[in-house]
Each structure stands twice: as C-alpha cells, then as structure tokens.
C-alpha cells in the first residue's frame, strides 16, 4: 500500500465532511482544506483554515474530519489542526460549491467588487445589510424578482 493511495483515500474522506450550516457542501469545496500530509506508516496530519476566526463550528468540523479520517483503511493516527495562515477568502470557494449554494440555498458568492447577480434571476442585487445571520454573509434583495438573497463574502 503506497502513501499516495492513502492520501487519496484520506482526501476523499475529508471531502465527505459538509459545512454544518450548508449540508451538501463539502468543506473542501468551501476551501477549508489547506494541507494534508501522510506518512508511509499511516500517520495523517490535516491542516484546515477557518472562514472566520471566531466561527463557532470549528470544533465540530474538526471532530467530523477526525471521525471521517479515522475510518479510512490504513490510517494509524490523525491530527487535525486549525491553521492561522493563510487567511481564507471567497476565492477559495469552488465553482461546484458556488453553483450548489445558488441552486440549493439561494446564496450568492461575491467574488471581487462587481455587482452580485441574483441566484434566482441573474439581475444585479442591492445590498440591504452588511451582515446577515453570519459574519461571512451580507443581505441583498433583488429589484427584479424581489428575492431576499444572502451573499457570502470575504
């Protein structure tokens, strides 16, 4: 059994862990996985970065990752750490996750500084509040279809 295959299996296990507030969206697709190291004798080190340092889900996510990796065949030990650097930004959210957020949660991801398109109808939205139910999300409304939209942003 080679280390590379083990790393692949561990990565697949980490990919099964969803964000506790976005069931169906993997923490890998949200850009939380920063490093993954495995040794030939099965010791695994996972480095994660938080979206926001005060995020209350940190211990829950780390527990979920530990549990998922522990179940992988060939893993002897697992060390999960929250890293202080680099700093997370919305650029790390994959296209897959952006599409799922728009389709399933009516949440847009703001990349860069341009207008934010409504996940329902595509029109540019208006910002109504800088903060929504979480520090990483603002609240917008769509002037065209009247949808109330949450916008994930850095």
């Amino acid at each position: 059994m080679t280390t590379d295959l083990l790393a692949d299996r561990v990565r697949s296990a980490v990919a099964t862990v969803d964000d506790p507030e976005y069931p169906g969206i993997s923490i890998i697709d949200l850009g939380l996985l920063e490093s993954l190291d495995t040794t030939p004798d099965g010791h695994v080190a996972v480095g994660l970065i938080p979206t926001f340092s005060g995020c209350p889900a940190l211990s829950m996510i780390a527990d979920d990752v530990r549990r998922a990796v522990d179940d992988v065949n060939g893993v002897a030990s697992v060390d999960v750490r929250w890293l202080g650097a680099p700093v997370w930004s919305v650029d790390r959210v994959t296209e897959t996750a952006r599409a799922t957020m728009a389709r399933e949660f009516t949440v847009a991801v703001r990349i860069g500084r341009g207008p934010v398109a409504c996940p329902r109808c595509g029109s540019p939205t208006d910002e109504r509040s800088m903060f929504g139910p979480s520090r990483c999300r603002a609240v917008h409304t769509c002037p065209t279809c009247a949808e109330v939209v949450e916008v994930m942003r850095a």
């Binding site: 995020c55 209350p56 509040s129 903060f131 929504g132 139910p133 979480s134 520090r135 949450e150």
Partner: peptide, 18 residues
C-alpha cells in the same frame, strides 16, 4: 457559540421580516 447563535437568530428575523 452563543454569540454566533444570537447573530443567527437576529439574522433570521431580519430575513423573515423582509
């Protein structure tokens, strides 16, 4: 967690009032 939950609840109220 309580701090974040407070923001969640107030945020939900905001969305629902809209």
């Amino acid at each position: 967690a309580v701090l974040a939950k407070t923001q969640d609840e107030i945020g939900h109220a905001h969305l629902l009032y809209m």
